[in-house]
Design a protein around this nucleic acid. Structure first.
Length: 232
DNA sequence: AGCACA
């Protein structure tokens, strides 16, 4: 088994990431890509010699991490297949959420000092990377909560499946929304099936970005979009 | 290959 004997953890550890990608972009893309599995508490990526090419994504639920480990295993991300395992230890953001966080001690002296004084005053900060998530408020989350048993998510791919559209939605309207995201190709709607649409992108990373950005978007107040990957 | 919390 690829995850070896590491016990389940609500944080996943990803390696074999493309080291050329800038840290902030990498974190944003990971956030977009993995938020389909559940609420993400934090994404950690460092570019130090020892830690480049790796990242941690902390979920609010272990089940989200488990699905991510299975379904995103070997997913081609910036041209390299992701290798995903459970993290070996609990993320600080998780410990903080549980109230069990204790600053660790075994570090180089200079770093330790700096950290100590930083952590000392800090209550807790918003842990979502770079504000990518604020836009929909609780909408996206309540979707996922309300949707747990419906079906397994389709494997990530370049085509998005949109549901819960108002019946008067046109492909023109959807094109206006989706073409602002890189890699947009086309919108397809089916006359006989109102309320749904397919939106195609060049690749799965780009479709994932659009999914995250427009998840829960409301064309009318009672129609938050539900976006998943199309079944191929 | 490499398991951190800038």
């Amino acid at each position: 088994m690829l995850t070896g004997d590491i016990p389940p953890n609500q944080t996943i550890y990803i390696k074999n990431l493309n080291e050329k990608i800038k840290k902030e972009e990498l974190k944003r893309s990971l956030y977009c890509l993995f938020s389909q599995y559940g609420r993400i508490l934090d994404v950690v990526a460092l570019k130090t010699a020892r830690l480049r090419g790796q990242a941690w994504v902390a979920f609010s639920e272990v089940t989200a991490a488990s699905n991510a480990v299975r379904q995103m295993q070997n997913f081609p991300f910036y041209d390299k297949p992701m290798r995903i395992q459970y993290a070996k230890t609990k993320s600080d953001c998780v410990a903080k959420a549980e109230g069990s966080f204790v600053p660790r001690e075994k570090k180089k002296k200079q770093e330790e000092k700096a950290e100590r004084k930083r952590r000392g005053e800090e209550a807790h900060q918003s842990s979502v990377p770079n504000g990518t998530s604020a836009q929909n408020g609780g909408t996206t989350a309540s979707f996922r909560q309300g949707n747990p048993s419906s079906q397994e998510a389709a494997a990530p791919n370049n085509i998005l499946f949109i549901e819960n559209l108002p019946h008067e939605t046109t492909s023109m309207m959807l094109e206006l929304l989706f073409r602002q995201y890189p890699g947009f190709r086309e919108v397809r709607m089916i006359e006989a099936k109102p309320g749904i649409a397919f939106v195609e992108f060049e690749d799965d990373v780009q479709s994932s970005m659009a999914m995250q950005a427009l998840q829960g978007f409301k064309i009318t107040p009672q129609n938050p979009m539900a976006i998943t990957f199309a079944k191929k």
